[in-house]
Amino acid sequence: MTAVLFDMDGVLVDSEDYWVEFQREDILPATVPDEDVAVAETSGMHFREIYDYLDDEYGAAISREAFVQRFTEAAAEIYTERADLLDGCHDLLAELDDRGVPTALVSSSPHEWIGMVTERFDLETEFDHVISADDIDAASKPAPDIFEYAAAEIGVPAADCVVVEDSENGIEAAARAGMVVIAYRVDAHGDIDRSPAADVVDSPAALRERTLALTE
């Protein structure tokens, strides 16, 4: 049996463009104003761990509370007003369901943010499992922990899982878990390292074709 695990930001919804803009223009300059930190350095990490990382590496100029508030306000705007759903998402999930292929939404975002997306786009019953980094007490991507946990929850060996990811940290995390990775190219990430992925796709149509081919 093969299971398909979908990342949320940048895959199911085109929120990554907005998150990259927010991090580049707002949160990184506010948190580490004297440092030139690339967004890719923290992409895919749980937002609370981003603060810890920035504070440890560079020294944070704002409090954790202020950091969390900025992220929380940005999430509400991005997920409820700005982001759009992946073209053909419902059809792809329906085809996988018809084949008996388990699916999971696996995200570093907290359940509250995931809920904004699933409610807005009628995805609340579309996935067999919805897994957040909040569910585990472990390291964020690029550590493989969240994907290893997801495979255990689904009951499928990691080697039988296909993961759709967009960020460098997410691609690395899934590959380190021993899963087959489809890298979904997002312009906002630029020229990141996608080499751990088995395939790189550039469009919803190509993503659908490759996902279905791997689950035949």
Rank of each mutant, 00 (worst) to 15 (best):
M1A: 14
T2C: 10
A3E: 04
A3F: 03
V4R: 01
V4S: 10
L5E: 01
L5R: 03
F6H: 11
G10R: 05
L12C: 04
V13R: 00
D14Y: 05
S15H: 07
D17N: 13
W19K: 00
R24H: 13
E25Y: 00
P29V: 06
P29S: 12
A30I: 04
T31Y: 10
T31E: 02
V32D: 07
P33F: 07
P33Y: 11
D34W: 04
D36N: 10
D36V: 06
V37C: 11
V37F: 02
A38H: 14
A38W: 08
V39D: 01
V39G: 06
A40Y: 00
E41Y: 12
E41S: 11
T42F: 09
G44P: 13
M45A: 11
H46F: 15
F47K: 13
F47V: 04
E49D: 14
Y51N: 01
D52N: 14
E57L: 07
I62Y: 02
I62F: 08
S63M: 02
R64N: 08
V68Q: 00
R70M: 14
F71Y: 15
F71R: 09
E73I: 07
A75F: 06
E77H: 11
I78K: 00
Y79D: 15
E81H: 12
E81D: 14
E81L: 11
R82P: 07
L86H: 01
C89W: 02
C89G: 09
D91M: 00
L92C: 08
E95G: 01
L96S: 06
T103I: 13
T103F: 15
L105C: 03
S107W: 08
E112A: 15
W113L: 01
I114P: 02
V117P: 07
E119L: 10
E124G: 13
F127K: 07
F127E: 01
F127H: 08
D128R: 13
V130T: 11
I131F: 12
I131C: 05
S140Q: 05
K141N: 08
A143Y: 05
P144K: 09
P144S: 08
F147V: 09
E148G: 13
E148R: 08
Y149T: 11
A150G: 03
A152W: 06
E153V: 08
I154G: 07
G155E: 06
G155R: 05
A159C: 07
D160F: 07
D160E: 15
D160Q: 13
V162R: 00
E172R: 15
A173Y: 09
R176F: 00
G178T: 10
G178C: 07
M179T: 12
V181I: 12
I182Q: 01
Y184I: 04
D187L: 00
A188Q: 01
H189T: 12
H189K: 02
D191S: 12
I192Q: 04
V200G: 04
V200Q: 01
S203L: 05
P204V: 05
A205G: 04
A205T: 04
L207S: 01
L207D: 08
E209L: 02
E209W: 02
R210Y: 05
L212H: 04
L212C: 11
A213F: 09
